[in-house]
């Protein structure tokens, strides 16, 4: 009996476009909800988590010397063949890279070089802004890689951004680890 009553109610609802009204109410509600757009690069930008695989950098040991032993394992494991290492022997008799170039135009940021490195010399950091007018600029050499900032302690936040990214942008995040992606999504 109540089942039939429900069906009659549904039919009456359809006759007066209750379903269309519901849809309109939903979109109207969404119109006044906060938008999820991140206004990059005008106003804000996303600072990734520390585990993010962004820019490459080479590490130094405690004495300030490059950690890399130029074993070329990273070059071997690289799936897109974008690392070029040429070793030499320095004055202490250690094997070091004379040339260490990463073609970031070809790199797919898989992080396998970081995993393969036996000397813990190469790692991937937080920066992701690699745009350039020339693909030649995207080939990064040894000294540049050494000068890059290392792993960040914090991340996972929205920070203020500016249009110019010529200098390295490194902003300490205020909202640490744990950006709530569902913050702006309207719950119904």
């Amino acid at each position: 009996m109540s089942h039939a009553g429900d069906r009659v109610g549904t039919w009456i609802g359809w006759a007066f476009f209750a379903d269309l009204g519901k849809a309109l109410a939903l979109t109207f509600g969404y119109m006044f909800s906060r938008s999820v757009t991140m206004q990059y690069p005008d106003k804000e930008k996303w600072l990734p988590y520390p585990r993010y695989r962004g820019h490459h950098f080479l590490k130094r040991d405690e004495e300030g010397e490059i950690k890399c032993v130029a074993c070329e394992l990273c070059a071997r494991i690289c799936p897109c063949d974008c690392i070029e290492v040429i070793p030499y022997e320095d004055e202490k008799g250690n094997r070091r890279p004379a040339k260490f170039e990463i073609d970031t135009a070809r790199c797919l940021f898989c992080g396998l070089c970081e995993d393969a490195c036996p000397a813990d010399a190469i790692a991937l950091g937080q920066q992701y802004e690699f745009s350039s007018f020339s693909s030649r600029d995207l080939i990064i050499g040894r000294d540049d890689l050494l000068g890059k900032p290392g792993k960040a302690a914090t991340g996972g936040a929205v920070v203020a951004a500016r249009l110019s990214t010529e200098k390295d942008v490194l902003v300490e995040a205020s909202e640490l680890q744990g950006y709530n992606w569902w913050r702006n999504i309207r719950q119904t």
Partner: peptide, 14 residues
């Protein structure tokens, strides 16, 4: 603009 806000975007901003 209305399209953007209904879809939780911002529409043209720049």
């Amino acid at each position: 603009k209305i399209a953007g806000h209904i879809q939780q975007r911002m529409g043209p901003m720049r």
